[in-house]
Design a protein around this nucleic acid. Structure first.
Lengths: 378, 378
DNA sequence: CCCAAAGATGGAAACGCTTCCAATTTAAAG
DNA sequence: CTTTAAATTGGAAGCGTTTCCATCTTTGGG
């Protein structure tokens, strides 16, 4: 045994020297080192059940010692399934997209998957064809979608027809319907918290500046806002619910109008930070002091809220955390379920960390900063 | 001939049905269709010189008819070189990074290359090891770097030791030294233009708010500023060159200090839009009207300059255009130079569009908006 | 203690492309 | 019209995995 090991080590060293100057460690090296066939090594890599515990350990040890990393290209070629996922998005908010991308990137790297970044235009008629093409040509096994793509029914349908797994990141109160393949951001609850916080400060006239109509996040946040008001016996005043867009300018304009009107307002809750920052700007133009005369809250904890002055109270959400979960969920789904052996194999720790319902629901948390304060006594 | 074609078509149809439900078109189908060997098809794909014109056309026609797309994984596996490039960056400015990424994405998609996105921490000691690992493990053939990574000498050295091509995007007046593998952004000229524009408006007391010390872009822009002043016989006043960082807050603070001091200033040139937006904020706090009493200019044409009020005059640069050129340049370098045939083959249009010196130098252009105006008559 | 069935392992054929090398064709020169 | 070198093509062996099948082990029951 001792001798055999020694020989093995030697031949590896030899082949290292012979091959490409930059020695690449392949499954063959691992097999040799562990004293098994490459088939077995492959089984271990793929966490297949039919490998004896002891063998598995030997192989894992060899993998670790050699610092072996399976070649993605070879995997893709050799297998009917692929080890590549894609992140498709259409969102002008680079802060949001970058955060999402980072989380996915991290998860895919951890699990040895490739990631294809695919920006696209959701308003295009051809969006469905585009996605179909993407999946087929790049042999993509899974897809992650963020709003607004994730909210489009035609996209969902297209993807279901194809043989692809996909995970959507969207807004909603609870896991319902298609929840099995979604990561839900509990915008309603978070908005409820923000509103309740304002109420706790004594505010009774809280305006809500919504985002684009039809956007799930905006709808959900509005629901949370209303729920908080109702729960605290404050009547919902439609004049205080101002429609508009997710933009600085829109926040600015709406605030100018509202604040120069006769409607009493002591707080503005912007549906995102951009809106809030715009409102803050308007308040300053109108010589309204924040937070003394007016409180302003936002949503997202983006640079807008951090760089404003005063810093804007907001609901913090870690986009990379959310998308990390999404990617892990997707990978779970992509990994073909090998039939489990009858023999109980509980002893073996499962390498694949499953994503539970808890990981599928993310609630942003209230982040109090300087733009909110006690309601002014009129 | 006619019959042969017919048979060919038949067998393709047959194999289409037999294979995976989602029929994938491979090099074999193309070869069959074109009536040549797969070797020849491969040669055409790779634009190798030793293919007769007529043959090439046949193959290209077949490729087009079948809508064939070479399989990246197979290419990577089969070849010593790889068809994957990476974009490594470390920059908190998501607007900048996203723009760069989009251009690279587009170019790599056009040329059938894979792209690996690699965010990293340039301040880490391990940055060099990290890059080395990235290149080796993912068998990356080329790398694109943006500041600050592209400005780090140790990174350049590490990459040169490895067998990787790389292209850096950096600031500079002209192509010098390592210029062959760089895309240069002519920040100096652009800053010159901005400054000259301000001078043209009658400003004589123009402050310059720089970015982080040592950042090439900041240094270059400062040079441009100085040059414009000198060229117009305006003395450079060190009190007006204010060091700081590339941030909103820094712009804000510096403007507050400067504007409440006794130093005469009629214009502020911020080294980027964030700084300018911060300065604008400070001006408003101090009740200084922009552009009536004070002109403010920025640099980059980022959302900061567009969403401020008034909109900020800036130097516009298309990050995606810059990075697109960078990616094309990189691909040119990665494509191994096949020995050219002696026979003049000029007739054949070269598919590979070479990047010339002109494409390697990019100059942002002045974009006049509302934050600048004639110098106030004191 | 023997036998069958389940469990564990290995052999070898793909996967789609590149590339070395040999074979064939073309063109140029004599 | 040869001869010969250059240009053009094709054959076949990889590249690193996965996976189908066949073979060898183990386990449990009788």
């Amino acid at each position: 045994m001792g001798i055999k090991l020694f020989l093995t080590a030697c031949s590896i060293a030899a082949s290292k020297l012979k091959e490409h100057s930059v020695s690449t460690i392949t499954i063959n090296h691992v097999a040799e080192r562990a004293g098994v066939s490459i088939t077995t090594v492959s089984r271990v890599i793929n966490n297949e059940p039919s490998v004896r515990k002891k063998t598995q350990e030997k192989v894992l040890a060899a993998i670790k010692e050699l610092d072996y990393q399976p070649n993605l290209s070879a995997r893709n070629l050799g297998s009917a399934k692929s080890y590549v996922m894609a992140y498709a998005y259409d969102n002008p908010n680079t802060y949001y997209v970058t955060g999402m991308q980072n989380g996915i990137l991290e998860a895919s790297r951890e699990q040895g998957y490739g990631l294809l970044i695919h920006p696209c235009d959701s308003s295009s008629e051809a969006i469905n064809d585009e996605l179909r093409d993407l999946v087929r040509r790049s042999r993509i096994a899974g897809l992650i979608l963020t709003p607004p793509l994730s909210e489009m029914e035609t996209v969902t349908e297209t993807l279901q027809e194809l043989d692809v797994e996909f995970v959507r990141i969207l807004s909603g109160e609870k896991l319902e319907g298609q929840a099995e393949n979604s990561i839900i951001v509990n915008d309603r609850k978070a908005a409820y918290d923000v509103t309740e916080y304002l109420i706790g400060l004594g505010h009774k006239h809280i305006a809500f500046f919504s985002g684009e109509e039809g956007h799930g996040s905006s709808t959900e946040r509005l629901e949370g806002y209303k729920a908080a008001l109702s729960n605290h016996n404050i009547p919902v005043n439609d004049a205080l619910i101002v429609p508009g867009e997710y933009s600085y300018e829109s926040g600015d304009m709406r605030a100018r109008d509202l604040l120069s009107s006769s409607t009493p307002v002591t707080a503005i809750f912007g549906c995102n930070d951009e809106i809030a920052a715009g409102a803050l700007h308007a308040a300053r133009l109108l010589n309204i002091s924040v937070p003394d005369q007016l409180s302003i809250a936002g949503f997202e904890d983006s640079p807008y809220s951090r760089q404003a002055w005063p810093k804007i109270t907001t609901a913090q959400q870690s986009n990379s955390t959310i998308s990390h979960s999404a990617a892990e969920l997707l990978i779970d789904k992509m990994r073909p379920q090998k039939s489990l052996p009858k023999k109980t194999r509980d002893a073996r720790e499962d390498v694949t960390r499953k994503i539970g319902p808890d990981d599928r629901l993310y609630t942003p948390t209230l982040l109090v900063r300087d733009s909110t304060g006690p309601a002014p006594t009129i």
